[in-house]
Design a protein around this nucleic acid. Structure first.
Length: 437
RNA sequence: GUGGCCUUAGCUCAAUGGCAGAGCAUCGGAUUGUGGCUCCGAAGGUUACGGGUUCGACCCCCGUAGGCCACCCCA
């Protein structure tokens, strides 16, 4: 009905929702920093080719979900909004010669991503990811560390029951042979395949493995498994990752059908998953190793691993499981008064309180004192500073709203008195409960 | 891109072809400057939008948009 609204698949985060986001953003920044991941911010858009080459031209993300920016006639390049953070970060790694930094380069980012996809609950065209990347470390230990970091994030956020789904999808040495074998296997059972699966067989045979079609269950159970066909180095890497996870006491579930949607993944692939949610948006985050991506985007061959955690789905999951956010802090003092000619004084008094480091706001519009006090009390303010006739003597009324007590004090003493009484109130008066000040 | 369900006040919902309503929220009033409760009142609507059927449409039909669900895919 309004003439303008937020674009399809986007939404406004209203003040009632932003405390959760603020908390999760701070938690991500704090965790990343403690693990040694340093903040990086890359542009929200890149040359389309960064995504087309990096993610893979025939992936869904590029083929049908890339948010392309209409080209201007005076520019030859084509741009696209980032659908995921990794390609841009790797582009920055190459551009800034980060291979000359101490390796691995550990980077973290938190911000909006864009995919042109039909919206649903937990699926938006603009969505937020907390992202962590370790570039330049080939070893399996960093795989385990990064998975542990992900599980830590969910736990500290307050979400229980997040499962780690783990798989290895091999590398260019062993995967092609496996894909050929898998294709031959399904091809031999072509008549048994549902229509959809036959078309997927042409495009991406690995996809059949995580089919939701019940008709595929038996066929998939008998299918050759990638984890049985890994080359020796991949197999060793995978075994070591699992051993490290076990040593860290991180439970995980082997998921041979786990295939990530982006072409750049090699070896370790994982998803963070929570069962039993409304709707099917159960993937809360995911990531994996991408040992070929740096080279693909013009750098030297460099191993790397990372993950992205979807904040939108995390916020939804937290709300569904009844996690509530701490209440927003109430103003310490509200400066009230019914005399419209004293507005300037109220403004000044509130300004002085704030200059003294206290939270204060002035009532500047409302007319009736009763309504002003009502609003202040409803907001949970501790004090009302009442500016009235006493002003002529340089005094104001200081009313403790929860206690219902009131006294007259000189304006000169106001900031000190409010600060003292508020501190005493917060820490509790000596020998009594938290109450009057 | 395919299929299904839904859309009435800011929010949650009534009104089953015959005068569009309630609760909550908002704002104001209850003897000019003192409270969160209570009471009274106001404001708030092109019934998502566009067309059609009908004496008459929130209600039936068609289309569009948006939301949701499933598929695809993914966070």
């Amino acid at each position: 009905m309004p003439a303008y609204r937020a674009p399809r698949g986007t939404r406004d985060l209203l003040p009632a929702e932003t405390p959760a986001w603020t908390r999760l953003e701070r938690l991500g920044a704090d965790l990343a920093s403690r693990y040694g991941y340093r903040r990086i911010e890359t542009p929200l858009f890149e040359q389309s080719e960064v995504f087309e080459r990096g993610i893979g031209a025939v992936t869904d993300v590029v083929e049908k979900e890339l948010f392309r920016i209409a080209p201007r006639t005076d520019e030859a390049e084509s741009w696209a909004l980032r659908p995921e953070p990794t390609a841009g970060i790797v582009r920055a790694y190459v551009q800034h010669g980060m291979q000359t930094w101490p390796q691995p380069v550990k980077l973290s980012q938190l911000g909006p991503m864009f995919r042109y996809d039909p919206p649903q609950a937990g699926r938006y065209r603009q969505f937020w990811q907390f992202d962590v990347e370790a570039i330049g470390d080939p070893g399996p230990a960093v795989d385990a560390e990064i998975i542990e970091l992900g599980t830590r994030y969910y736990r500290d956020a307050g979400l229980e029951g997040v499962e780690v789904l783990l798989n290895s999808i091999g590398d260019p040495t062993c995967r092609p042979a496996y894909v050929a074998e898998l294709t031959a296997y399904f091809d031999a059972h072509r008549e048994a395949l549902p229509e959809l699966e036959r078309t997927r067989l042409e495009r991406n045979p690995l996809r059949l493995l995580d089919s939701k079609d019940p008709a595929m269950a038996a066929l998939n159970a008998m299918a050759p498994r990638i984890t049985d066909r890994l080359c020796e180095p991949c197999a060793e890497h995978f075994a070591a990752v699992r051993a490290h996870l076990q040593a860290l006491a991180i439970p995980y579930r082997l998921e041979p059908g786990l295939v990530r949607g982006l072409d750049y993944y090699t070896r370790t692939a994982f998803e963070f998953y929570v069962a039993g949610r409304e709707g099917q948006q159960q993937a809360l985050g995911g990531g994996g190793r991408y040992d070929g991506l740096v080279e693909l985007l013009g750098g030297r061959p460099t191993p790397a691993i990372g993950f992205g955690i979807g904040l939108d789905r995390l916020v939804l999951a937290l709300a569904e499981t009844g996690v509530t956010e701490p209440a927003e802090s109430a103003p310490i003092a509200v400066v009230v008064g019914a005399d419209p000619d004293a507005t300037s004084h109220r403004l000044r008094i509130a300004t002085d309180l704030r200059a003294a480091g206290l939270g204060a706001r002035a009532e500047l519009g409302r007319r009736k004192l009763g309504k002003q006090l009502e609003a202040a009390a409803r907001d949970g303010a501790h004090f009302a500073v009442i500016v009235g006739d006493e002003l002529a003597d340089g005094d104001v009324g200081l009313r403790d709203l929860p206690a219902g007590t009131q006294k007259v004090i000189p304006i000169a003493d106001l900031a000190r008195e409010v600060g003292r009484a508020h501190a005493a109130h917060r820490h509790g008066p000596p020998g009594g409960g938290a109450g009057s000040a």
